[in-house]
Write a protein that binds this DNA or RNA. Structure first.
Lengths: 213, 213
DNA sequence: ATGTAATATTTTGTATTCATAGTGCAGAAT
DNA sequence: ATTCTGCACTATGAATACAAAATATTACAT
């Protein structure tokens, strides 16, 4: 097994996203490069490289002379991101091999039913949801599309921890996953795609209703 | 008029894309950072920042210890990019205000008919085509989506100069633009969206047939 | 007390330096 | 003859140093 060797900037990027998931950063706050670099135990150079990458993904924004800061959240942007990811995931599903999806159906259905119960950590729920979607799209041959989806989703992470721990939405999310999986089991790709699109639209509205702002 | 003050990395990025359009870089070739930096008259730091941005957009790829290089072109990737941009532009059109599009229709139609003739520079044709699409999407309220389209299209620039100067495809491109514009004039958004999608599929095939590879 | 100008401090943007990984070649061992 | 090893060289990855811009502070005038 080859030992993992990745550029520092990528490791830093991942670590920053983890911290973001944990809610360590408040949206809209400036980033102090020297402070963050010393906190992470790296120099400013690879840190800035990671920040630039994240800015390209929309997680951060940069202003001349003012450095980087976490892009402020807004209902408008969240809606925009949901529209985009909904369309991209739908496309990915459409491009997937029908036979593969059919075989995948039962597993997706099982996972959807085993959705973590309400007592689980918010982060755990998020992770499970992400993995389910990743598996759903695992048959898509368009690699660039999958990369792009990952990148856009990174920009959505700022919204994840804003979700209040509510119960009903969770069950509806699971129910929608079941609907998608069932359509796949039946080999009805258009229905699955439509259900997936609904899932994003509804997910957006569920979230919106809980974003006090 | 305030004088333009942008980070060096962005100016460098733009300049590199310009050079790419001019065909200054062969796909698949490694980038020598010191050489390129001195050629541009900047230091390696902002250059590397620009390279990292371009890598995030898929224009370049980076390998640990081996630096950056222009991502090699392939029929597969080109098809993937067309699929993505087609879906994104369709979404952008769907989200646009119907009334605005209707008002825009005549202008789009006029521009489509005034498509530059065959003797024009390849670059000129590209620019005109880009501007036409930009105008088509100018009514889309989803700003993130427009940014994303721009970013993905940056990754397609590597393919632009591979097009041989052929005549027939150009006329078909113009004809398709007319179809889209006509649908908008009639206020038939679904037809326009479908025509736009066709435009990307056909454009892809036109290009594919000319990519010898 | 408040507003403004001058100055000090902090922070970012860019350049330079240093360390280490990658590459190619020469020569020895098989 | 071929392959492996060691060494020199080159290029990248990361750290540090410097310059410029933005922000904070203080002194002064009103």
């Amino acid at each position: 097994m080859p030992i993992e060797r990745r550029p520092l900037r990528e490791q830093i990027r991942d670590e920053l996203l983890r911290k973001l998931d944990r809610g360590d950063f408040a949206a809209g706050t400036d980033i102090n490069e020297v402070a963050l670099a010393s906190e992470l135990g790296v120099s400013r150079t690879p840190l800035r490289e990671a920040l630039i990458t994240l800015a390209g993904e929309g997680v951060l924004e940069s202003n001349q002379g003012r450095g980087f800061r976490f892009a402020p959240v807004s209902r408008k942007e969240f809606r925009e991101l949901c529209e985009i990811v909904g369309a991209l995931e739908s496309l990915a599903l459409q491009l997937s091999d029908a036979g593969y999806l059919r075989r995948l159906g039962p597993k997706l259905l099982r996972l959807a039913r085993d959705f973590p119960d309400q007592v689980a950590e918010q982060q755990e729920i998020e992770r499970h949801d992400d993995e389910w979607h990743d598996l759903l799209l695992s048959g898509c041959p368009n690699e660039r599309l999958l990369d792009l989806i990952t990148s856009v989703k990174a920009g959505m992470r700022r919204y994840a921890h804003l979700q209040a721990g509510d119960d009903a939405p969770l069950e509806r999310e699971a129910a929608e996953h079941c609907r998608i999986a069932e359509a796949l089991v039946e080999g009805d790709l258009p229905a699955a795609t439509a259900a997936l699109r609904d899932n994003w639209v509804n997910g957006m509205e569920r979230m919106m209703s809980r974003l006090t702002e």
